[in-house]
């Protein structure tokens, strides 16, 4: 069994104005698996991701990444070992595609030939031909292409962990389905520890090895997709019922 890449140990977290976001939250994510955290908006999913790369620190309890609590990590070093993909991508509009992908390798003082080779490799990985894309600007790309660049940028330093916050939420269904396929292909190649946050149960079923349902700051269930599908937990059923196409098929007869 590979070691736990990410572990939450009894984490408490509340926002200013003391609204509790996470309430005694614990989870263990193994290296190399893809975990989807599903929940309604405001369930605390994004907070979980931000605790992993130390954009936030827990009020109590520990978030352990690669065996060390985030508290003890240098935040810059930690974040460069964790790729982060946002729903709105957040590509730098003043930089070309190449420069967007090369930002962090350059900050790491990679020699330029190595950086460039890595950019080409990443473009190939996400399925965008370098000769057509390397010198284009972010606003010349479609939403799906931008999201691919977001993934390429996040993987540029070859981090062991990839966090994805509603990565395909803003895309049309066709593109989303296409990118789901691409995700599997890429994950086959790179085998990262991936944590995807989504409010879409169908997406979780399409992508994840294990699915965690987050409700009211706690983990309602965390299991293989098949087990989640058959869960009797009311909080899980509510989410499943919200996905008519899927639940029609999956409702136990």
């Amino acid at each position: 069994m590979p070691p736990c890449a990410i572990e939450f140990r009894d984490v408490m977290f509340s926002r200013a104005g003391d609204r509790t976001v996470l309430d005694h939250f614990s989870i263990s994510i193994e290296a190399g698996e893809t975990v989807a955290l599903v929940g309604r908006s405001g369930a605390g999913k994004t907070t979980i991701l931000k605790l992993v790369n130390r954009l936030l620190l827990p009020d109590s309890g520990d978030v352990v990444v690669e065996g060390r609590p985030t508290r003890d990590w240098d935040p810059i070093v930690l974040r460069r070992r964790i790729g982060y993909v946002l729903q709105d991508v957040g590509l730098f509009p003043h930089l070309t595609i190449t420069d967007n992908i090369a930002v962090i390798p350059r900050l790491e003082r990679w020699p330029e030939p190595r950086t460039h080779a890595r950019v080409l490799e990443m473009l190939q990985l996400v399925g965008l031909p370098a000769e057509r894309f390397e010198s284009r600007w972010p606003d010349e790309l479609s939403g799906g292409q931008r999201q691919r660049i977001g993934v390429a940028r996040a993987l540029a330093l070859d981090p062991p962990v990839l966090l994805m916050d509603e990565p395909f939420g803003a895309l049309d269904p066709m593109t989303r389905a296409e990118l789901h396929g691409e995700f599997h292909r890429i994950q086959q190649q790179v085998r990262k520890t991936v944590v995807i946050v989504t409010h879409d149960m169908a997406e979780a079923f399409a992508l994840a090895d294990r699915i965690g349902v987050v409700d009211d700051g706690a983990l309602a269930v965390f299991d293989r997709p098949q087990a989640v599908r058959e869960s009797r937990d009311a909080r899980v059923r509510r989410l499943l019922d919200a996905m008519p196409g899927l639940t029609a098929r999956s409702r136990p007869s």
Binding site: L55, G90, F92
Partner: peptide, 24 residues
């Protein structure tokens, strides 16, 4: 979002300023 992306990628304050905020 752009600022957040920079921070999450592991830019220090000064790198964020120099590479992202000032150019924009």
């Amino acid at each position: 979002v752009i600022r957040e992306a920079g921070i999450a990628m592991g830019m220090t304050d000064r790198e964020l300023l120099r590479l992202v905020e000032l150019p924009l």
